[in-house]
């Protein structure tokens, strides 16, 4: 009889554990990570100090003076088996993008490489519904899954240093919106006036794991119309 491999608990030193639900990028695996995150925040386990959901695992920081590894492991596994769901409705963001030209300097490169027209690449990019799997790498940087494999493109060999905030990019089979200025090895296809990270805004980060994202094309002339009121482009849907 084979023992199910997941979920499993791995030590990260003496003050954190990783609860793994798989080793793939997958909606269901990610949903279970987020469900454990919600469950842990609801039970308020003494000693648990911070949790960090990622693609396929939940990192749980704890104070070993308050709770030991064995007890936390048992409690986490019990909660992981409950498959509890968040009460929060799934949020669907609609993000305006100016595609191509100086806004997306790699759009033509991608079109040439995948054998589609620029308009077709934009159409495929806008047709998808993307899932926010996790935030990481930089403040507010959301990894989006759900890109059409027809417009997937491996990362650049050399990253560029200063991607402007709002840069909409493709890296492998993932999509992203640049949150703060910084390096990017992904291909830049457009830019949005939406600020997914703003230090003094509540919320600081617009996109959260489990959210859905769609993109729609706007013209460069419409940039100012959309800038500054981007938080309006969210629709709520009950999961």
């Amino acid at each position: 009889m084979s023992v199910p491999k997941y979920p499993r608990v791995l030590p990260c030193g003496d003050a954190a554990i990783t609860v793994e639900f798989g080793d793939i990028i997958d909606d269901e695996v990610n949903a279970r990570v987020l469900a454990l995150d919600v469950a842990l925040s609801e039970v308020r386990l003494p000693g648990v100090t911070e949790t960090v959901p990622t693609y396929r695992s939940l990192l749980v920081h704890y104070d070993p003076i308050v709770i030991g590894f064995d007890e936390l492991k048992a409690r986490a596994l019990a909660l992981a088996g409950e498959r509890r769901r968040s009460n929060r409705p799934t949020r669907r963001w609609r993000i305006p993008v100016v595609y191509g030209a100086e806004y997306g300097i790699d759009l033509e490169f991608i079109a040439n490489n995948v054998g589609l027209s620029v308009d077709e690449v934009v159409a495929f990019h806008c047709a998808g519904t993307y899932r926010v799997f996790m935030l990481g790498f930089m403040p507010g940087f959301a990894y989006l899954g759900g890109l059409d494999p027809l417009i997937a493109m491996p990362r650049r060999r050399e990253p560029r240093q200063n991607a402007p905030p709002g840069t909409v990019s493709i890296g492998g089979i993932q999509a992203a919106v640049q949150s703060v200025p910084g390096p990017s090895g992904w291909h830049w296809i457009g830019r949005t006036p939406l600020r997914v990270y703003a230090r003094d805004r509540e919320p600081m980060c617009l996109l959260e794991p489990g959210d859905h994202v769609q993109f729609f094309a706007i013209s460069a002339e419409e940039w100012d119309t959309y800038a500054g009121r981007c938080e309006q482009f969210v629709e709520y849907e009950v999961a």
Binding site: C12, G13, A15, A16, T18, T54, Y55, L58, L59, M134
Partner: peptide, 11 residues
């Protein structure tokens, strides 16, 4: 390459 996961101090 692993599917990215969380990092703690001392990893």
């Amino acid at each position: 390459n692993i599917v990215s996961d969380g990092i703690v101090m001392g990893h």
